[in-house]
């Protein structure tokens, strides 16, 4: 078993674990964590792909993708955390409600505008 295969398989397992958590858990923080576990697995997978060159040197393109991917995942996590925190402050909830009906508009809006 080569090192590349170990990394590839480990990455795949992480993606699987993360997808399971993402689908099953309802707590918002757990879902955000699950997304990050999927991301870590994916980056490991990309890293393993970079090693698969015939002469054994590393392919720089997947490595560039990993760095970009980490930045994107970081931004998404920060936004999700901020939204989840504010949501918890306002409602006391840590999970979304099951039904998703469009909410009524802000009736104060036009009053505020006078």
């Amino acid at each position: 078993m080569t090192a590349t295969l170990v990394y590839g398989l480990a990455g795949s397992v992480l993606v699987g674990v993360g997808l399971y958590g993402f689908a099953v858990r309802r707590h918002l923080l757990r879902q955000i964590l699950a997304f990050n576990i999927i991301g870590s697995g994916l980056f490991l997978l990309f890293g393993a792909l970079a090693r698969r060159t015939p002469d054994g040197t590393s392919d720089p393109v997947p490595q560039a993708m990993i760095i970009t991917g980490i930045v994107v995942a970081f931004a998404a996590t920060a936004l999700a955390e901020a939204l989840a925190e504010r949501y918890q402050e306002l409602t006391g909830r840590t999970a979304l409600e099951e039904d998703s009906k469009p909410a009524p508009p802000d009736e104060q809006e036009s009053e505020l505008r006078g």
Binding site: L79, A80, Y87, T91, P104
Partner: peptide, 14 residues
């Protein structure tokens, strides 16, 4: 920034 729109945004994000 109301609770209802935050919930909608979170659902969209997930």
């Amino acid at each position: 920034g109301r609770a209802a729109t935050l919930a909608a945004a979170l659902r969209y994000l997930l």
